[in-house]
Design a protein around this nucleic acid. Sequence first.
DNA 1: GTTAGCATGTAAGGAGTTACATGATTTT
DNA 2: AAAATCATGTAACTCCTTACATGCTAAC
Lengths: 189, 189
Amino acid sequence: MARRAETIELAVLGLLHEGPMHGYELRKRLNLMLGWGRVLSYGSLYPTLKKMLRGALIEEATTTLTPVSRRPRIVYQVTDAGTAEFERLMSEVGPTAWEDDNFGIRFAFFGRTDMEIRLRVLEGRRTRLQERLDRIQSQLSMTEQEVDRYSAELQRHGVESAEREVQWLSDLINAERSQQANPPAQPQN
Amino acid sequence: MARRAETIELAVLGLLHEGPMHGYELRKRLNLMLGWGRVLSYGSLYPTLKKMLRGALIEEATTTLTPVSRRPRIVYQVTDAGTAEFERLMSEVGPTAWEDDNFGIRFAFFGRTDMEIRLRVLEGRRTRLQERLDRIQSQLSMTEQEVDRYSAELQRHGVESAEREVQWLSDLINAERSQQANPPAQPQN
DNA sequence: GTTAGCATGTAAGGAGTTACATGATTTT
DNA sequence: AAAATCATGTAACTCCTTACATGCTAAC
């Protein structure tokens, strides 16, 4: 079950929607998007691109710019099949959509999904975080053993972060809902 | 270069300091500690324990409790070599100490390290986060391309979270420093 | 002219998850 | 009696990182 590979594919498809790009540039953009952890290595990206080529999700673009004597670089663009796959992945609702790694990418491309999907993913993510909080809280009340100062501070900070994240999600959900109630006359932004 | 394996070993050594424990229980505690992402699987924990046994960092405890007819479970305790290894790992100052995964564990066991080490790890972590922020900010100013609403919101939220984390670290660093200036008459907690 | 960054890849190896396998004990 | 959870493991497989290999181009 490809956990990160799928994420990368989704991100590549989404980024290429902005326009053709070559691998090196994709890597930089990708690292910015999912960069909240480790960086993506060439050994991970290029094979993925090759695989996507084979699957006809992307294709090499005919280099329209700077016709001759240019540095050899392979520019990719998405195919129709790739666009379809992007839409399929984006409308998948389920655990994979709100896992830590995946959620960020989904969110970044929310602009290209239905509000119904957006709401379900946001709510799924919120539930996931809430579960985590509950688990910690129940564990804390269960163990009456005194924890040391630093462990306690780490727990406290962790809970606080998670709660803030939940609040952020709630605000976003409310925003979507009120938009649902009053659809804007003209599409904004 | 074992990135997570070392983390697990450190956590196991630290936890067993509280007293002997068996694998199943260790796993639960571990998942709570580093649980801010994926959970630790048996296929990961048990081989690690075996490896630590071979390395004589831990040993099977003679089951003192409930002498007979008890469910077969292997209780581990740390050896002197294990304690030494724990101290060695904890006093290692360098990138491995403030990586995302590692930092939490180090912090949880800060109570068993010198303040000098604590300060260096906290500062290292803060610098790492600050670098991340700078990279994002410079990228944002470079690309004058208009980003869509959701991508922008994600960026904003990410920056906010990182800034809050930096503030948290700064507070902790200040607390350590003022404690350095006024050492408490009696050890608290 | 030399360093730094652009650009594309491959091979080997490690780390860890998934899935499988097994059985005891407690709870319902 | 069945279901849930405790408890320990192994093997295969996947994914990804690390390290290596190559060469171009811009800047200093």
